[in-house]
């Protein structure tokens, strides 16, 4: 039993999941159990916990893509803008504002929106892998341009749509569970399988630790980067679809605004070193749930939303500190000094 626990606790996703459960429990206790209340209406599950999963789905998807980007030692700060673009394209098509010939075909709209996201990711990938621009700078270009592009698609308007088929992306249910959850399971599942069953994971960690040596070992670093940024773009597009389906329209100014920090935070909580190297997608998913549940918790306590920003900022600094070698050394040397003093006296 103990052995099993030890083995389990060594998994990267272990502690994030535990923390998530603790947060849930805390909510449960504070709310006097209301928090865990599930109700079934029309065969659909409702409840606060379900909401966390539903609302956290965007972040989980982004975090899954972001994990790989961060594992290469890079970053993708354009995800929020890509979400805006994808939402703008999908909604404009469904609404008939652009490509009216499609008659608002939802499936085509979704496919084109995701393709747009993939294109954005590919563009980032080209800048990073081929032209070798630092990732922050490379993705910054799209961060600046993205919302502008989205606005140009919607002609500067906030678009509202009426399409039950499109609403389903966020509000739908399958087997009584919210549909976005299935999107997460599908995307993350495919990704986890891909990373686990192929040597993609090994290559990725290798590239994150030492890209030059990886190249010499025969890993095609450029191709890897290209694929990873493309996936990140594609995932961001899906997140953008969920968001726009949630608000039943496209708001280019606010869609995915500042969500890149949440995604990075989620990955950091999951234990991936932001400098690159070892990573775990399940841990990042748990990290995303933690971020979401913190948001929910804080809001439930009646604290203004602004404080969540402060809290997240503090949290990410603390996590980065805990990953910092220099900080650890400082702590240990401090302890050692204390010990020495104690011995000396």
């Amino acid at each position: 039993m103990k052995e099993k626990f030890n083995k389990l606790s060594q998994k990267k996703a272990f502690w994030p999941v535990v923390i998530f459960l603790v947060i849930l429990l805390f909510n449960g206790v504070v709310s006097g159990g209301d928090f865990f209340k599930l109700s079934i209406v029309d065969g659909h599950l409702y409840g606060r916990v379900i909401d966390i999963f539903r609302n956290g789905s965007k972040l989980m998807i982004l975090a899954a893509g972001m994990t790989m980007v961060l594992a290469t030692g890079g970053t993708d700060i354009s995800v929020g803008s890509v979400m805006a673009i994808s939402g703008a394209i999908a909604c404009s098509i469904v609404n008939g504002n652009i490509l009216p010939g499609l008659n608002g075909n939802v499936v085509v709209a979704i496919i084109l929106a995701i393709l747009a996201g993939i294109t954005c990711g590919f563009w980032n990938g080209i800048l990073v892998a081929k032209i070798k621009i630092q990732p922050i700078v490379a993705t910054m270009i799209l961060l600046v341009a993205g919302r502008g592009i989205a606005q140009l698609v919607t002609q500067g308007k906030i678009i509202t749509i009426t399409s039950d088929a499109y609403y389903f992306i966020n509000g739908g249910y399958i087997l009584g569970l919210p549909f976005p959850l299935f999107i997460v399971i599908f995307l993350a599942g495919v990704l986890i399988l891909f990373v686990g069953r192929t040597s993609f994971g090994l290559f990725l960690e290798s590239v994150g630790c030492n890209p030059k040596a990886s190249k010499f070992a025969g890993i095609q670093v450029d191709k890897m980067l290209l694929v990873i940024y493309t996936i990140s773009g594609g995932f961001a597009a899906v997140a953008g679809l969920i968001e726009s389906a949630g608000i039943k329209g496209a708001d280019c100014n606010n869609a995915g605004l500042n969500i890149e920090l949440d995604a990075i935070l989620a990955v950091a909580i999951g234990g991936t070193n932001l400098m690159g190297g070892r990573f775990s997608i399940p841990a990042s998913l748990a990290g995303a749930l933690i971020v979401q549940s913190i948001t929910t918790t804080v809001l439930a306590q009646g604290v203004p939303a602004a404080y969540i920003r402060v809290l997240k900022a503090v949290l990410i600094i603390v996590i980065c500190l805990s990953q910092s070698k220099e900080f650890k050394e400082m702590l240990t040397s401090h302890k050692a000094a204390k010990k020495r003093k104690a011995v000396g006296e």
């Binding site: 090994l202 290798s206 630790c209 030059k212 040596a213 990886s214 010499f216």
Partner: peptide, 9 residues
């Protein structure tokens, strides 16, 4: 160090 080993693996 820079072209051979992958230190953290």
């Amino acid at each position: 160090k820079t072209e051979g080993i992958i230190g953290d693996l």
